[in-house]
């Protein structure tokens, strides 16, 4: 129960931080915000890495492998495409 309350505390506080920051993002940057935050949600990757590396049995290893692929697409694709878009918003001097 103690670990749950600690985790819940972090969850609720992080949502507050998220709301505070995201409301300040201007509409012009909403698409990069979405793709960038999407890349961040690829953090599930670290759970996938553990499943794939523990090698408990073939099933968990297979699930882990597919999860690593999915999450890695999310992370690599997300950060790259966000970078591509943000470069276009740079001032052309």
């Amino acid at each position: 129960m103690d670990t749950f309350v600690a985790a819940l505390t972090i969850f609720v506080l992080a949502i507050y931080v998220g709301f505070e920051i995201i409301t300040k993002v201007p509409p012009t940057l909403h698409t990069p915000l979405m793709s960038g935050s999407n890349a961040i949600s690829g953090i599930t990757l670290i759970g996938a890495i553990l499943s794939a590396g523990v090698k408990m049995n073939w099933l968990t290893t297979t699930l882990g492998f597919i999860a690593v692929v999915f999450a890695m697409i999310n992370v690599v694709g997300g950060f790259f495409v966000t970078h591509r878009m943000l470069e276009m918003f740079k001032r052309k001097d």
Binding site: A7, A14, V17, F19, L33, M34, I43, T44
Partner: peptide, 29 residues
Amino acid sequence: LAAAATGFVLNNNVLIISGSLVGASGVIL
């Protein structure tokens, strides 16, 4: 939110934090 829920499964704070940030962003949008 799915990432945050997975954070609760693994008891992993960075998953919970990142998941909630993204969840907040999606809700606001």
